[in-house]
Design a protein around this nucleic acid. Sequence first.
RNA 1: GCCCGGGUGGUGAAAUUGGUAGACACAAGGGACUUAAAAUCCCUCGGCGCAAGCUGUACGGGUUCGAUUCCCGUCCCGGGCACCA
Length: 880
Amino acid sequence: MQEKYTPSDIEKAAQEYWESTQAFKAQAAKDKPKYYCLSMFPYPSGKLHMGHVRNYTIGDVLSRFHKMRGYNVLQPMGWDAFGLPAENAAIKNKVPPAKWTYDNIDYMKGQLKSLGFAIDWSRELATCRPEYYMWNQWLFLRMLEKGIAERKTQVVNWDPVDQTVLANEQVIDGRGWRTGALVEKREIPGYYLKITDYADELLNDLDTLEGWPERVKLMQANWIGKSTGVRFAFKHDITDDSGQPIDDGKLWVFTTRADTIMGVTFCAVAAEHPLALHAAKRNPDLAAFIEKCKHGSVMEADMATMEKEGLPTGLFVTHPLTGEQVPVWVGNYVLMSYGDGAVMGVPGHDERDFAFAKKYGIEIKQVMARTRTAEDSDAAEYDLFDAAGDWKEWYGWKVNVQTVNSGKYDGLGYEAAVNAVATDLAAQGIGEKKVQWRLRDWGVSRQRYWGCPIPMVLCDDCGPVPVPDEQLPVVLPEDCVPDGSGNPLLKREDFLNTPCPKCGKPAKRETDTMDTFVDSSWYYARYATGAGANTMVDAETDYWMTVDQYIGGIEHAILHLLYSRFWTKVMRDLGLVKYREPFAHLLTQGMVLNHAFSHKPEGGGKDYYWESEIDVQRDAKGQITGAKLKSDGTVLDHELTTMSKSKNNGVDPQALIEQYGADTARFFMMFAAPPEQTLEWADSGVEGAHRFLKRVWAFGHALAGQSAAAMPASLADDLAAARREIHVTLKQASYDLSKQQFNTVASACMKMLNALEKVQKDAADGWLAVAQEGFSILLRVLSPIAPHISHALWRELGYGGDILNAPWPEPLEAALKQDTVELMLQVNGKLRGSIKVAADAGKDAIEAIALADEMAIKFMEGKPAKKVVVVPGRLVNIVA
RNA sequence: GCCCGGGUGGUGAAAUUGGUAGACACAAGGGACUUAAAAUCCCUCGGCGCAAGCUGUACGGGUUCGAUUCCCGUCCCGGGCACCA
């Protein structure tokens, strides 16, 4: 056995051994419980970064741990290979996205292999391969048949100079990233998947996901956003140019606050609303305002933070309960795509309406008063409603308030008022209670090249026609090079021209491709499908699914996970799978953050710089206070954010692996922080992890070549203590693993080695027995985290077989046993010392010992003990 | 702006989920070995104090015999907000 720890040799040998024995090839087996462990597949951006290392090491630790626990483990890997960065790279380097993507996959696969993950590579897939994405197309056609997919209009960011649709990411401060042109909102046709049809089930089934973090379920529930309210109409007799009443003379709105309906002093409609468009015909100012509303962002965050602006239309509608005339405004914050594109304005009891009314001098009516409760009976000053003053929190409350100035509805609480109002509106036939969802349908059309083609043909005569199944897949040509000025497929005649499947006349293919979230919505099921399947999924899927443990970044808490859940339910309804949820347990890994430095140049866009290109200024505590570009001194913006290719702040693990080895990289990553916690990247501490592995190797080397020693019936004190320390630590480590808290499992390994090293080699008989037993425990606990060194030492020391299949160690009661325990001694909650008592001492005996203690007597200052709290095994607190 | 997290020594973190705050490490300082360096090993290490002790888990309150942990409020940082993935 080599004396020196040389990771490069050890790791290469272990990986070759695993490869030659096909150690990680997963096959259905009846004699063992299955464990499908899945990490979110990476986007092939070029190189791995530390976030990947963290994600995949977590998955690997869980996989290897479960294998040792006797499970039949599947851990697959693949590539989320379609997406925008490949097109950006093409624009920059004039390389086809396909080539760039495949090259990146090659490189990153090599990196993953060098990290020694227990992956079944035979199941590898890439979503940009026709054999994968043809099933996107196939399922899309099924959805179309069932009415789950439909064609509607969608609002997109339009760059008027490049004549192209921009992703939100490509819009910086309202301007196109390449052209700097003001971006416009534009309506174009696109396909939607009716996820809202599944809203109820997606919400209710969250309760069945016991293995999901509460915070993720909460985020999803909030996103789905079920709210009960009232949809009702304001009647009017506004007619269009042909004399027809617009929208049948009804302005529909939805509200969750029908209890405040008597406080309505205006209505606001979206810029695209028929009433707005009608009024604009005779009002140039309004027409200009509507035109202005077309610019700007489609993002919710921008909508919420932008200055709320409006203009009166000069039109009035009739309040359904008071008969009063209510002015109609156009508001830039009202979206045509939400509900009916119109809202009622109650400035007295809605904060946004309050600000709007004050800005434009609209009347503010109080229709709610605070109800006095026991807790705030003395808060008289808060009860005063002041329309001229500032907004007060309670104006918007639903509880501890009741209706006032509301005529027949006076004196009611929230629910009673809503019910009374809804009943009266229903009696008039212009309103009803309605469940409203925040969740919107999933728009899947992307005006981009590098994605899965939507299998439709546009015929002048027949309109949009689905591509027949037997013509699938619609293959994306892989040699296009996007240049930023629209979808290159529009110039590909060979792709574009095709006969209409219905009438046979010349027609054009749809050039829109699918949202890449489609690709990632079912890849987990495809991994589990047998090789060579000529269906989307097969019987083997039923064996492996559902995924027992899914691991991925918290940034996917809503969209990816919700779309995957939806897709699963659609597949179930089509009879393709039997399960209703894809992921039983979810571990949301915290992001690995790094500093990012950027600058917004004159012509628009946003440039990111590598840390090596800049000078960083720090304060005395090392906090970054500023940064300048080395080349020309440009002052840069600074943020702490997730590692990504586009921000030039990814840290490549390659240097780490080459210098210290994969085991050190893995061990350090696990040791650094618990998996769910956000982690600011710093490599200080890598040395320590490496030092530890060197000590493990050295200890193993010292034990090599010795035959197995029997454990003596009794051990010297220091050996018994060391052995106990090992078993106590093992117990803790197993518990921590069940909690998925790997940083303390890593530190447990360190504690075990510390305990073993502490006892002198020749201290007493039994040393060898304790060392051999302890080291075999240490290696097994260490092996999921640092598998290569554990594999090598396990074989060198002849513990028998392959550590991959060694049973997980169990702590021995005999080793854990102790005769006396130390209890902390508190007086009035302050630590004053400690007492030693027999391990089996009763409460009375412990009390007696505590009260007789010198420190207890001193700090009780002669006062009698009012109460003595005894926490078994932990402490005694004397209250004097 | 809205939804969800987080904040503990110089640094990463731990605390059996209400019971010894800082385990395990990193960095730093001191020492041993060495001609020297590297490597390795030993010691010190929240703050104040000679000590007894006091104080300390972002900040301000509260509940409790006892709060990093539970409740209320504030500040800061991160994630998501539907075309980045």
